[in-house]
Design a protein around this nucleic acid. Sequence first.
DNA 1: CATGAATGAGTCTTCATTCAT
DNA 2: AATGAATGAAGACTCATTCAT
Lengths: 216, 216, 216, 216
Amino acid sequence: MDGNTELKSRRFAPKEVRKQQLIDATLAVIAEKGVSGTTTAQVTGKAGLSAGIISLHFENKDNLLKATLEYLAAELQERWQAVNDDSSLSVEQKLWGIISASFHPDICSYEKIRVWFAFFGEAQYRAFYREMVETFDTERGNAITALLVQLGLDQDRAEGTTQTIESLADGLWLSMMLYPHWVDIGQSQQRLWELLCLHFPDRFSLAAMPAAVAAK
Amino acid sequence: MDGNTELKSRRFAPKEVRKQQLIDATLAVIAEKGVSGTTTAQVTGKAGLSAGIISLHFENKDNLLKATLEYLAAELQERWQAVNDDSSLSVEQKLWGIISASFHPDICSYEKIRVWFAFFGEAQYRAFYREMVETFDTERGNAITALLVQLGLDQDRAEGTTQTIESLADGLWLSMMLYPHWVDIGQSQQRLWELLCLHFPDRFSLAAMPAAVAAK
Amino acid sequence: MDGNTELKSRRFAPKEVRKQQLIDATLAVIAEKGVSGTTTAQVTGKAGLSAGIISLHFENKDNLLKATLEYLAAELQERWQAVNDDSSLSVEQKLWGIISASFHPDICSYEKIRVWFAFFGEAQYRAFYREMVETFDTERGNAITALLVQLGLDQDRAEGTTQTIESLADGLWLSMMLYPHWVDIGQSQQRLWELLCLHFPDRFSLAAMPAAVAAK
Amino acid sequence: MDGNTELKSRRFAPKEVRKQQLIDATLAVIAEKGVSGTTTAQVTGKAGLSAGIISLHFENKDNLLKATLEYLAAELQERWQAVNDDSSLSVEQKLWGIISASFHPDICSYEKIRVWFAFFGEAQYRAFYREMVETFDTERGNAITALLVQLGLDQDRAEGTTQTIESLADGLWLSMMLYPHWVDIGQSQQRLWELLCLHFPDRFSLAAMPAAVAAK
DNA sequence: CATGAATGAGTCTTCATTCAT
DNA sequence: AATGAATGAAGACTCATTCAT
C-alpha cells in the first residue's frame, strides 16, 4: 500500500517522468480516499517525493488534479479513436470496438473507475471535464450514431440507442465500482454485447462474442 | 434553487423539523459544491441557523452527511417498495413501476442526482452506502429478476437483464447529471421502456408508454 | 459515577438546596476532570438539572467555581476555628486540634483534595483564594505560632516551625493526592504528630497519639 | 518575565531548538494562565512562531503539554540523581544534596513551580506524571530512606521520615507558590535543614548550614 | 423556579503553499 | 531540480450563555 513507487524517485528526473509519477500517485490516493480525502502530503508521500514538488511541476494541487483527470480522459479517448480511425474494420467491428474500449483492463481498472467517479462527484471537476471533452464526447456519440444508422436504424432511433449504449456503459462502470463482487469487466461486455444482439439479431449473435472480445 | 432561503424561524422547532431543515440545506450545498467543497458554515448558513446547530442535532458533520445520504436512500427505497408491495399491479406494471421509481421527479431532481454522485465519489460514503443498502439493493435486484422470470426469461438471462436494467438506469442518472441538456427524465424513461420493448415485444409496446408513465 | 445525585432533583427546591447541589456536583466533576476539563454541562448533568440552572443561581460558571472554592475554604476554616475558640482545651490539644483539622475525613477526602489542587493550579482561582483567605490564613498561622511560643519556642523559631508545620500539612495533602496508595490520612497525622514529638519531646509522646486523634 | 520575547528567528532552526523554544513558551504561558487558560495561540505567539508549528513538532497541544511536563520532571531528576550518583559525597552531603536539589533556583523558580502545580491540578496530566515518574520517584524515596538508615534510623522510622521530608519539600513549594512573599527558597532550605537537625542533632547543626547550601 | 434549544465566540487542527537552502 | 521547515488561512468543533416557554 505504501512501498510501491518509492524506489522510482531519484534525486533528478526529467520533468515528464516526475509529472507522471505524481499523476500515478494521485490516481492511487484519490481511488482510496476520494477527492475530499486527498491531501498533497499523501500524494507526494506515495510518490516518495517532497512537499514542494507539486508547486514545482503543477503550480498547485488543483492543476495536478486536473492533469490527472486529463490523463484519464486522454487515455480513454485515444483508445476509441484508434478504433474509429481504423478503416480496416467492419461496421460491426468498429461499433463494438468503440463500445468495448471503455472496458479494456487498462482503462477500467477498479482504481481508475473510482477516480472517474471521484471527479464526477465534484462540481468543479465535472465542469472542467465537460469543457475538456466537449468535442470528443459529441464526436464519439456521433460516431456511434452513424454506425447504428449504417446498421439500419433511422436517425432518431439511432440517437436514442446511442444514449442507451453510452448510459449502459457508464452504469456498468458504476456497478463495477459499487459492487465489484457482483459486476466485472467480462459481465459488462456481455451486457453490452447482448444489447447489440437484441437490436441487430442478424449482425450480432449471442453465441459468438465474449471470448473474441477479450482477445480484441 | 428551491426557495428554502434564510430565516425559516429561530428558537424552537421540533427536533425532526430541524434535522430535515439541515438535511435539505446539506443537499443543496453538496449539489452545488460537492462533498469536498461543503463546509458546515455553508450548510448552516443556507439553513439560516447557527454554527453550533450541527453538533446539537447530528453530533458532527460526518453524521449529517450520512443522514443526508440515508434520507436519499430511504426516499428512493420507499418508492420502489411501495410498487413492489402493491398486489393490485400486473407483472408488467410492477416491473415498470420499480424501474421508473428512480425517475420520479421527486427522486431524480438535478440536485439530488448530483448529491448521489457526490457521495458515490467519496470512498467513505460509498462504503457507508453499501452497508446501509446491503439488503434492500439485493432485494430490488431479486424483485426485478423474479418479474423477468415471470415474463418468460430463464433465471440466467433474467439476472443478466436485471444487471442491464439497473446499470442502464444508473448510467442514465449519470448522463442526466453530466449532460443535463442532452438527457432528461422523459428520455431516460423512454430508453428504459425501449429496452423492455426489445426484450418483451408482446408485453411492452413502443407506441403505448412514456406518457402513461409520466402520469403514473 | 453518575447516578449519585440525580434523584435529589425535584422540580422546585429552595435556592440554597439548589446551590449546594450544584456545588456538590462541581466538586465531583472538578475532582475527576480538573478545572480545564470541567464543563457546565457535566456539572448540571451530574446534578440532574438543566443547562440554564447555573445562570439562575450563580449567574455564570466562574461564580459557581468560586463558590465551590469558598465552600471548601469555609468548611476547613470553621473546623480549625472551632478548635481555636474552644477555651476548654489545653495548649497541646489546641495545637494538635488545629493541625489535625486539615485531616478530618470530611475535609481531606480524596475528592476534595483533588479539587483544592485543581484550584491551586489555576492562576485566577489562586488569586481569588488568596484574597478570600487573606485574613484567616494569617490568623491560623498566628494562632499556631502563639501556641508554639506558649510551648516554649522563641518567636523566631516559632514562626519557622509554623511554616514547617503548615507546609508539611500541605505537602501531605499533595502526597495523598498524587500517591493515594502510598500516603493516607492516618499516616499524614502520624507524620505531623512525630514532628511535634521531635520539637516538644516532653509534651508530645510517640507512644500516645494517633488513636486518640482519630477519635477527636 | 524572562526575556524570551518575540522574533527569535524564522526559517530553519534545528528540530530540538524549536521544540525547546515551544516548551519554554509553554512554561511561561501555563505559569501565567494555568492549564485551562493556555491556548495554542498564546504559546506560539509567545514563541514568535506560527499556529501550525505545534502540529509540526508535537502533533497536537496535548503532546506539547506532556513534553513540557516531561521537561520539568527530567530537569529535576537529573539534578538529584547527579548527587545520588556522586560517590565522593558523605552520607550527610548526599542526603542534603538530594533534598536541596528541589530548591535549586533553576528548578524551583516561581514560574516553574506554578507550572508544576498547574499540571498537578489536572487529572489527566497527574496521571501522565505518575506513569512517567513511576520508577524514578520510588527510587528517590528509596535513596533517601537508605541514607536515613545509614544515619541511624531503623527502617520503619526511616520510611516515615522520608515521607515527612518529601512532603515538607512539596509543601514548601506550594507555599512558595501561594505566598511568594512569605516563603522563599532560602527559608524553604532552612526549614528542611532544621528538620534534619532535629532528627540528627549530632550530624546536622543549626549553626552551620544554610549559607553553605546556597553556595552548593 | 426551571428547562433545553439555539447561539456564536473562541480554539484546535489541518493542509496547500511558500521559500531559504 | 528538489527539499522540507514554516506559514497562516480555513475549517470543524466545543461550550458558556441566553431566552422563549
